[in-house]
Computed example of a mutant assay.
Amino acid sequence: MVAVRRATVPLLLAGALLLSGCEEESPAAAPGTTRAATSTSSPTSSPPSTPSAVTPTSAPPTSTPTPAGKVVVLDPGHNGGNGAHPAEINRPVPAGRGQTKPCNTTGTSTDGGYPEHAFTFDVAQRVGEALAAKGIRVVYTRQNDTGVGPCVDRRAAIGNEADADAVVSIHADGSEAAGATGFHVAYSAPPLNAAQGAPSLRLAQTLRDTMRTNGFSAANYIGSNGLSPRSDLAGLNLSTRPAALVECGNMRNAAEAARMTSAAGRQQFAAAIAAAIEAYLAS
């Protein structure tokens, strides 16, 4: 049901296991916000980089003012150094529901070679800047796009430790099915705790609805009506906070790949996700 992703460094990861439907990884905060202190077994990585500013092609929809002081954890999928450290990212970690999964994966890429990890990091930074401007405290699960991990279980722990009001994982899919296009939003099902029930479903629905109103089409190859209930994603299974994972689109689709590789396109994704999070926090 879920597309198989290609490893971006096939020679190093010949024996690596790829997660079906992206999963996630040590935390950083948006510019001007406080980072949550965490530890990780991953190699030390360099300070965060900030993407160049881009003027949105259209203004995000107006939402109800969000009270300052809310906490949002943004989880950009994968990491740029994963491909060079197969032993680290392939070691098994808890994934919830009695499962284990590889620590992390390399993610997918466009046919032109633009990697998912770069896309997710750039979009997450843009979302974080928009939320921080509204007085929302933002915590990232990774500080840059050159490190390794963190592992999927650690990414979930970051949201739990931050006592996040919402946790949003940002990914892109790599389906090679003919004509596969569109975004979908995953949430934990059946829920394992109260936060994974109504709050997470409402977060997923708000992301789905806001993506649509911002001009994005729901996936035609996975899930139903833009939503995908999942029991196999560690970041969702291990969360004790409202959490959802948005696959922004299919990087193997030429039109969607073109949008993802452009700064203006990434700003459009970010504006929609930020508006959705604001709407959820205000509801």
Score class of each variant (00 low, 15 high):
residue 198 A to M: 10
residue 162 A to H: 08
residue 138 V to W: 08
residue 103 C to K: 08
residue 243 A to M: 12
residue 210 T to E: 02
residue 157 A to L: 12
residue 153 D to P: 12
residue 195 A to Y: 06
residue 205 Q to A: 15
residue 18 L to W: 04
residue 246 V to M: 07
residue 188 S to F: 11
residue 53 A to W: 10
residue 103 C to G: 08
residue 46 S to H: 12
residue 152 V to N: 09
residue 227 L to W: 00
residue 1 M to P: 12
residue 251 M to Q: 09
residue 195 A to S: 07
residue 205 Q to G: 13
residue 79 N to S: 10
residue 116 E to Q: 09
residue 151 C to W: 02
residue 134 K to W: 08
residue 98 G to A: 03
residue 195 A to E: 07
residue 78 H to A: 00
residue 165 D to L: 03
residue 99 Q to W: 06
residue 267 Q to N: 10
residue 248 C to D: 03
residue 261 T to N: 09
residue 226 G to C: 07
residue 200 S to F: 13
residue 36 A to Q: 13
residue 176 E to Y: 15
residue 30 A to F: 01
residue 158 I to W: 10
residue 170 I to M: 00
residue 194 A to H: 15
residue 237 N to S: 03
residue 75 D to S: 15
residue 115 P to D: 00
residue 216 F to K: 01
residue 266 R to I: 01
residue 16 A to R: 03
residue 207 L to D: 06
residue 192 L to M: 14
residue 135 G to L: 05
residue 37 A to F: 14
residue 191 P to Q: 07
residue 238 L to P: 09
residue 109 S to C: 14
residue 251 M to N: 06
residue 155 R to Q: 14
residue 283 S to L: 15
residue 72 V to A: 07
residue 221 Y to I: 03
residue 249 G to Q: 11
residue 107 G to V: 04
residue 91 R to V: 06
residue 123 V to H: 00
residue 155 R to C: 14
residue 96 G to T: 08
residue 101 K to G: 01
residue 47 P to C: 06
residue 5 R to M: 11
residue 226 G to Q: 00
residue 224 S to H: 07
residue 21 G to N: 00
residue 212 R to S: 08
residue 242 P to N: 08
residue 128 G to V: 00
residue 170 I to G: 06
residue 121 F to E: 02
residue 200 S to I: 11
residue 147 G to K: 13
residue 99 Q to F: 06
residue 114 Y to C: 00
residue 90 N to C: 07
residue 134 K to T: 05
residue 24 E to F: 15
residue 118 A to Q: 12
residue 112 G to V: 12
residue 148 V to E: 00
residue 94 P to I: 04
residue 54 V to R: 02
residue 187 Y to P: 03
residue 242 P to W: 11
residue 128 G to T: 01
residue 236 L to I: 01
residue 39 S to V: 05
residue 168 V to L: 06
residue 264 A to C: 05
residue 197 G to E: 13
residue 31 P to R: 14
residue 267 Q to E: 10
residue 279 A to C: 07
residue 139 V to L: 13
residue 83 G to V: 08
residue 214 N to T: 04
residue 36 A to C: 09
residue 76 P to I: 00
residue 9 V to H: 13
residue 84 A to D: 12
residue 38 T to N: 11
residue 41 S to K: 13
residue 135 G to T: 02
residue 83 G to D: 07
residue 253 N to S: 02
residue 190 P to Y: 11
residue 189 A to I: 11
residue 187 Y to C: 04
residue 63 S to K: 13
residue 237 N to R: 10
residue 228 S to Q: 04
residue 173 D to S: 12
residue 125 Q to T: 01
residue 115 P to Y: 03
residue 262 S to C: 04
residue 176 E to A: 15
residue 131 L to S: 04
residue 99 Q to N: 08
